[in-house]
Structures are given as C-alpha cells and as structure tokens.
C-alpha cells in the first residue's frame, strides 16, 4: 500500500474537513493532489501536528479536524497521544502513515520497524477507537469511518517507504499559514459549507452586489 494512493482515496472527503499534516512526503503528496485553503502543512516542529490539530479541534468544535501524521512524528510526541485521549475531541481524526522509516531524511528505520505498535500505544493511551490497516480498501473504509465518527478516532496505515520524486512545494509556509487561518474564520463561509468549497464558488451563494446599477436585460 502506498501513501499517495491512500491520500487520493480520501482526497474528496477532505474537502469539508480541516486538515493538518506533518512535513515532508506527507505534505508534498497531499499538495500534489491539489492544494486547498483548508490544508495546513506543518513544515517543521516535528511531532506537533497532532497538538496543532488538537488546538484547532477544541477551538472550533463545529469542524472536523483530520491530522495526517507519520510514524517518526508520532514517536516524537508519544505523550501527545495521552493528551488526545484525555480530552478526546469528538471532531478529531488522527491518521498515521507508518512506513517504519524516516523517509524524508535518509530512510533510517524507526522503532516501528522493530515492533513498536502505534495503534497499540494509542489504545494503551486511552484512544479506544484505534485500528491498523494494511490494504488500500481497508484504509479508505477506516479513514472515512474515522472522519465520519462522532468521537476521537485513530488509524495507523502501514505503507511502503516510498515518497515523491521532489519535495518542492510552490507555497511558502507563511502563505499557507495565513490562507489557512482565513479559511477557518467563521465569516469566511456559512456553517455547514465545505471548507474547500471556496475553490469552486457556488454561483447560487453569491449575492448580487447591492447598489450597483445593472444594465437592463436585452
């Protein structure tokens, strides 16, 4: 199972979520499928994507937050799993791509290569709704269920240690940061409207400008 195929399988589903990813291959691959204003790529601060997602989730309980994490990053913030479990925001789904390596920085094996089980760690931390998948169809079903769930959910996806040919993203991290914060503003869109819907304006939702003279219809 490849991470890019997993991401592609849920890409449409992410349109009405708030998405926080880690750096490196995860960010680049999601970006390569098509950037949306509701996607935030944490390009540094390894380990903190789940904490950022928790902050968004408690600050904006009306939106579904999807954290897309990796084994190396989760291992750097294992305590964060206990904090997630403790507050268990019902609007948070934590997806972890476990390729058993630090792929973006040379491919050295992580502790999951020698048996550390992230789903087991999450369950032991108190995240009861945690599962591991190894096949694409299982991932798609588990991720969609996690996103639809009214409760904290975690999915560990065992994926091949392959990544993008290039790590270039034509999006400065500050541009991403400000665009994302704007997309999360309550007045940026009506509640219930998909966060990604800004890409494709719905003509029915655009009110005609007031005070502007319109030529008579021919």
């Amino acid at each position: 199972m490849r991470r890019i195929d997993c991401l592609e399988s849920i890409y449409d589903r992410l349109a009405d979520c708030v998405v926080v990813t880690i750096m490196g291959a995860v960010a680049v691959e999601l970006y390569s499928l098509g950037h949306r204003p509701n996607f935030f790529y944490l390009e540094h601060a390894m380990g903190l994507a789940s904490s950022v997602g928790l902050g968004v989730a408690v600050a904006d309980p009306d939106r579904k937050v999807v954290v897309i994490d990796g084994d190396g990053s989760v291992l750097m913030n294992l305590g964060g799993l206990t904090t997630l479990a403790r507050y268990a925001p019902p609007n948070l789904a934590h997806l972890i791509f476990d390729n058993e390596s630090l792929l973006s920085v040379g491919g050295f094996p992580t502790a999951t290569a020698t048996g550390s089980d992230l789903t087991g760690l999450a369950r032991a931390a108190g995240i009861a709704n945690a599962t591991t998948v190894t096949e694409l169809t299982d991932f798609t079903a588990a991720a969609e269920a996690a996103i639809a769930a009214d409760g904290l959910s975690l999915v560990t996806a065992k994926v091949e240690a392959v990544g993008p040919a290039s790590f270039h993203m034509d999006l400065h991290l500050l541009e991403n940061r400000f665009e994302f914060a704007r997309a999360l503003r309550p007045d940026s869109r009506p509640r219930g409207t998909p966060a990604g819907a800004g890409d494709r304006p719905d003509p029915t939702s655009v009110a005609p400008p007031t005070g502007v003279e319109r030529p008579p219809a021919p």
Partner: peptide, 26 residues
C-alpha cells in the same frame, strides 16, 4: 475556558498554534 493539561510543555505550543489559527486566544 478550555483547559488542556499537558504531558509535556511543548505540546502547548502546538495547541496554542492550532487555537490561534482557528481564531481563539490562548
């Protein structure tokens, strides 16, 4: 107020970041 007790202080930096991006002061 939403109180989040941390396992390690650095988590709080991430949580404050998320809260700010979602429009809340922390």
């Amino acid at each position: 107020v939403t109180l989040i007790r941390l396992a390690k202080e650095e988590e709080g930096v991430g949580i404050s970041t998320g809260a700010h991006l979602a429009g809340k002061r922390s």
